[in-house]
Every structure is written in structure tokens, then in C-alpha cells.
């Protein structure tokens, strides 16, 4: 499905935790055809300041939405579906999003990126989300649950956050049939410590019963910490990467991550087009952090 550019209308914008919001957007039906892990570039209609659109993963999409009444607010967009995003307020753009009332419109380009690869014939899947990395992981859980129902696939989700308030979508995940294990750095819920510690314990005990891949989305240090774990257990690892983006569709060359390649010359891939989901073995993990003090916004 090729991406498109459209206007969407804010239908709901609800605070779900101290720093987190859920926003529902009404837009053209084609937005609903997405793969978990794909994202939207969300921009302001005036588009001068803030200038750049913000990348937001698609949490869920409902289609078809009952068509809007002709004279009504949404009629001009020919709206037919509803897309949900979850976001953390961590800067100017997300603060402006948080202040948006229903009825206001935003500019959207999407769905963008490759999305997670779903293997149908596995009996297990292990998913890890850190902080605001949860939206694509929750979307993936729901798709895995329906697609792989016939195989009785066991879905284990690991959620990590600074404290209890940073753990989102827990009930959604359970409702989809996943086993959810949580870790918080302050110990306010679940294991006190890092989610990767929980993951290691789990894999050490169960590895022999697992045939599916690891899927992860979260802050860079978490994704990097999972890479050697996946390697040690010889499990395929799909990681959702982040980078500052200007366009989101492969035109600016701004959103690169370094790839393991030949030693003499650095190779880069585009997060927006070649990703955001990468094979964990492909990424040059130690180098990525060199990206100079960014992305604190989405730390766990």
C-alpha cells in the first residue's frame, strides 16, 4: 500500500497517564490498511512553526468508520476510518498535540515504513516494549493474536518503564491473549529493574520451547541491550529504530542508522524507508549512540 497525504480530524485526545495521551484521528479509509510497526508523519496544517511533522506509530485503526454526515464537520475529508496514536509529551510538538481539541485538523502522510514481519507458522512470539515504544508492540500483539490463533501461538510481552505510570496498554495486551510481564526502574510495579533483565531470565528458562522471533520497540539503550541477548539465544530479532526525521518517506536522507558492513566504509540505512523495523543483526549498535544527545524524549 503506497502512502498518501491527507488531512485528518482529531476525534478524541485523552490523557491516559501523567505524560501520555491517546489521540484518535478520523481520515480516509486507506489509512486503516497498515502493518504493525508502520507510522504516520503528523504535521500542523499551517506548517511553518513547528515546521517538521512528527513520527507517530499507528496504535490501531478501525475501518470502516460510519461515513460522516454530509454537512457535518468531517464530511469534507470524506472520512471513513479512525486511527489511534499514543504519544508522550516530551517537547514542543507533542505539547502542542496535547492541547488539541476534537474538531481540529492535522496533516498526515502515511502509512510509512516497512512494519514488522510476521511469520505465520510459529507457536511463540516474544515482544518487548520500553516506555512509549508500546504502540507498535500492542498493534503487533493484536495482529499476531488473530492471525496465529489457529496455531495457538503463545505471545509473551515484556513491558518496561521508569515507574508504573509509564506502563501503557497492559489491559489491551492481556485482552488480546498475551502474557504480560512488567518491570519498572523504581519498583512501583512488577520486577524492580530493567525489562531486559526480565527478558533474560525468561529466555534462560524457556528458550527450548520458543520458535518465534523477538520483536522490540523502545529507547535505544534497551534495543541495544537486547541485541546480544538475541544473539546468545540465537533468536531472530526485529527492532524498531528511531531517528530524527524531516520527511518520513525517503527524500531527505536525514534519518540514517549505521549498518554493519565492511570496516573501511560506513554504510547507512534510512529509518523511514528501509525501517523503522530492522533485523537486529544488521545494526551497528555501538555506533548509534554517537548521535549526539537526542531522543531523550522517548527514554523509558
Amino acid at each position: 500500500m503506497s502512502p498518501s497525504e491527507c488531512h485528518v480530524e482529531v476525534v478524541a485526545n485523552k490523557q491516559i497517564a501523567p505524560e501520555y495521551f491517546s489521540m484518535r484521528l478520523a481520515g480516509p479509509a486507506r489509512l486503516a490498511r497498515f502493518r504493525p510497526g508502520q507510522f504516520l508523519m503528523l504535521g500542523w496544517t499551517d506548517g511553518r512553526d513547528p515546521l517538521l511533522s512528527r513520527a507517530m506509530s499507528i496504535r490501531s485503526a478501525k475501518s470502516p468508520h460510519p461515513p460522516f454526515s454530509k454537512g457535518g464537520n468531517g464530511g469534507i475529508w470524506g472520512a471513513k476510518c479512525e486511527v489511534e496514536i499514543l504519544y508522550k509529551v516530551c517537547g514542543r510538538g507533542t505539547a502542542l498535540l496535547a492541547a488539541m481539541r476534537p474538531g481540529r485538523s492535522l496533516r498526515v502522510v502515511g502509512p510509512l515504513g516497512n512494519g514488522f514481519e510476521i511469520s505465520r507458522n510459529v507457536t511463540s512470539a516474544v515482544l518487548i516494549a520500553g516506555g512509549i515504544g508500546v504502540p507498535p508492540i500492542a498493534a503487533l500483539t493484536e495482529v499476531l493474536a488473530t492471525r496465529c490463533a489457529a496455531h495457538g501461538t503463545k505471545i509473551a510481552v515484556f513491558l518496561g518503564g521508569r515507574s508504573k505510570a509509564d506502563l501503557l496498554c497492559v489491559s489491551d495486551l492481556r485482552r488480546a491473549g498475551a502474557t504480560v510481564r512488567v518491570a519498572t526502574e523504581d519498583g512501583s510495579a512488577g520486577h524492580k529493574g530493567l525489562v531486559t533483565e526480565l527478558l533474560e531470565q525468561y529466555l534462560d528458562a524457556r528458550r527450548s520451547t520458543l520458535d518465534g522471533p523477538l520483536y522490540a520497540c523502545g529507547p535505544h539503550p534497551m534495543l541495544a541491550a537486547i541485541a546480544p541477548i538475541a544473539e546468545r539465544h540465537n533468536m531472530p530479532y526485529q527492532a524498531s529504530m528511531e531517528a530524527n526525521m524531516a520527511c518520513g518517506f525517503g527524500a531527505c536522507m536525514g534519518c540514517v542508522v549505521p549498518i554493519r558492513g565492511n570496516a573501511r566504509e560506513r554504510t547507512y540505512r534510512l529509518v523511514c524507508k528501509d525501517g523503522p523495523i530492522f533485523d537486529g543483526r544488521e545494526i551497528l549498535w555501538d555506533e548509534q549512540g554517537a548521535g549526539v544527545g537526542k531522543m531523550e524524549g522517548s527514554a523509558v
Partner: peptide
Amino acid sequence: VGNPPTRIVETPAGM
């Protein structure tokens, strides 16, 4: 191959 990341930052009404 171009420069290492970060390659892009937003600034007031610009980048």
C-alpha cells in the same frame, strides 16, 4: 555515504 547521525534538527521555523 554522507555524515553520521544526527543529521537533522528542527529550529524555529526552519531546520
